[in-house]
Structures are given as structure tokens and as C-alpha cells.
Design a protein around this nucleic acid. Structure first.
Lengths: 187, 187
DNA sequence: GTCTATAATCCGATAGAC
DNA sequence: GTCTATCGGATTATAGAC
């Protein structure tokens, strides 16, 4: 593994655990096993490091969305895949909480990352609206309602469930909070 | 207004905007119009200041829960009041996001605040479970399901909706995300 | 590419005058 | 209760040797 990637891996965990302002480059360097100054060979600043981390995370999620759109023909199956992926990331400590953690630190971030955060959110919402529209047509989603309202409620639920599970360090809370959403999807 | 209260007001906004590690006592002092050292006359440390802020916030919410339990006899009306109060706090910039902001900075906080955060969460969940149980008995909640699952989903939805609305600085997103939850409550 | 050394700044906290 | 002044430490970032 390249040093650059290792730095990103270690720093990504730090962002999720403590937010942008909650970790120092010194800690990252110690965990990676290099000197603090070596980080600046790979990234010109702390902000740029975090921007690179979020871009990688964002691209991973976008790739998942694209693959799921191809793999799953029914809307309900797409939503179920979304819930499962979100749970997997939570268990691996790679959850959507990164975008939440960065959102809270907004004022201290550069415009560059803030734009990426907005694009990340919009892309997820659009994908979810499409999944709900599809699912209501193909009968795999059991409840009626406006797809836009459903998509916003779904994303809020997933984000909130991840936060609650994370702060209690207990994935079961994610399962409890999303149980009813799963029951509204036909198998 | 006493200086102590003004410090708390200004610092509370800073916590919500930037998290515990995202603001400095120097900024607070400047906004209040006093010297940084004067803060230490009222609070022995930054941690103690934030602990006092969260205790005040927590007590305000607990008072709201108690009053609503007395005022609203039907479960659905209690949930509707919860959604409205949550929206009001969001508009005033006093939202539940404070507990979320602090949750993310967990590693940098003292055990004192972490316990308060856990109590805050448990109290809200217990109150919501009771409201759902009541609402399913009195017919004011339209959907069936396990009250504990419903309470967790409801809190996750509200938290997530607040986060989304806050990061876009648009209360309408809170309304969109909670619209379906409101439609499941009988008027 | 990684190191040592250090600059420049910011931060939480204290001491002591008024 | 609020001020000025300052300490001690941490943090981002740079300079230059290897």
C-alpha cells in the first residue's frame, strides 16, 4: 500500500471519530509510522487531505449507486440494498457519518468540500426518488405517498439511525430504527 | 442579562455551528464583548462551559416533554407537538443538533457530558415509546408496529431531518422529510 | 520520499492589578 | 467581576539535509 493511501485510511477514521477539528496531523503521522512533515509531501494542507478523503468516499458511494441501479430491477430491492450497504459501512466504521461529521464543521472547511457535500446529498436524494418511483410502479413498495417526501424521509431515517447506532457503538440500534422501513418493502 | 448567561448563549451557538473543537474561547469573548480571561471567572474550563450549556439545553427539552405529557392526552397529539417543537428549535437555531455535534466530538469530551448525552437520548426514547403505545390505544396513530421500533425510527427521522435542513440552511427540508410521519398521525 | 529542525500561530489556562 | 499580561503547550506548515 502506498503511503498516500495509508495516510488517507488513517485520517478517514479520525474524521469519522472526531470531526475535522478533532484530530491533528501529528496523531495521523504517529499512527501511520511517519513524520508529520511527510504528510505535506503527499497533501499540501490538512484541508486538502480531508477533501481527498471525502472525494474518495463520495466516489465509492456513487459507484455503489450505479452498480445497484444495474443489478436491481425493482425499486424495493434497490432500497433494501441501500439499507444493507449503509449498515455494512456502519459496521466497518466507514459510514455516511463522515458527511455528517464534516457538515458540522462546515464553517471551518473550504468552499471546495462544501460543494462536494452538497453534490453528495443531492445525488443520494435523486437516486432514492427514482427508486421510490420505480418501486411504486412495480409494486415492491407497499405504501403510497409523494416520492420526494419518501426519499427525504428515507435518507433522514438512515442518517439518524447511523448517528444513533454510532454514538452508542451498537449496530442493533440501526436495525431497530430501520425495521419499519424494511417492513414497507415487499420481498 | 447576566454575563454568565450571555457567555452561554454565544457559546451554545458556536457549539451547534462548529462542534466542541471548532470554536475558541477567544471568539466567544470577542462576540460577548469581554476578555477571554473573564470567561474563566464564570466557568473553570471550556469543558465545564459546554457541560453547563448542554445541561441547560437538556433541561429545557425535559421540561417540554413533561408539559406536553400533561397538556396532550392523545399519543398522536404528543408526537405532533414533538415534531413542532423540534421544528421551532431548528428555526431558532437551538436544535437537537447540539447533542449530535457533541456526540461526534465524544473522544474529546469528559465523561460527565457523555453521561448526560446518554441520559438525554434515553429520556427522549422512553417518552416516545410511551406516546406511541398511547396513540395506538387511543387510535390517534394510524399505523401498527412495535412501539420501540416506532420510537427509534421517529427519533432517527427527526434527527436526520434536522441535520439535513441545517446543512442546507433550509427549514423546508425538515418539513418535506417529516411530512409522511405527520400523515400517519390522525387529527 | 522521508527525515530533523523550527517558524508562526493559536489555544486553554493562570497570576495579579484594579 | 473584569482587566492586562503571560505561560506552556499544541498545531499547521515550511526549510533544507539526506
Amino acid at each position: 500500500m502506498s503511503t498516500r493511501v495509508t495516510i488517507m485510511d488513517v485520517a478517514a477514521e479520525a474524521v469519522r471519530n472526531s470531526g475535522y477539528n478533532g484530530f491533528s496531523l501529528d496523531q495521523i503521522a504517529r499512527d501511520v509510522g511517519i513524520q508529520k512533515s511527510s504528510i505535506f509531501y503527499h497533501f499540501s494542507s490538512k484541508t486538502e487531505l480531508v477533501a481527498a478523503i471525502f472525494r474518495r468516499y463520495s466516489n465509492d458511494i456513487f459507484a455503489f449507486l450505479d452498480q445497484t441501479t444495474i443489478k436491481e430491477a425493482r425499486g424495493g430491492d434497490r432500497l433494501m440494498a441501500y439499507l444493507l450497504e449503509s449498515r455494512k459501512l456502519l459496521e466497518e466504521g466507514k459510514s455516511i457519518c463522515m458527511s455528517i461529521a464534516l457538515n458540522i464543521d462546515q464553517e471551518n472547511l473550504h468552499a471546495e468540500i462544501i460543494d462536494d457535500l452538497a453534490v453528495f446529498h443531492e445525488t443520494n436524494i435523486k437516486w432514492l426518488i427514482e427508486a421510490f418511483e420505480l418501486g411504486m410502479r412495480d409494486g415492491s413498495i407497499l405504501e403510497e405517498g409523494d416520492p420526494e417526501e419518501k426519499a427525504h424521509a428515507f435518507l433522514a431515517l438512515v442518517d439518524g439511525a447511523q448517528l444513533m447506532a454510532r454514538s452508542h457503538k451498537n449496530v442493533a440500534i440501526y436495525d431497530t430504527a430501520t425495521a419499519l422501513a424494511r417492513s414497507r418493502i415487499s420481498l
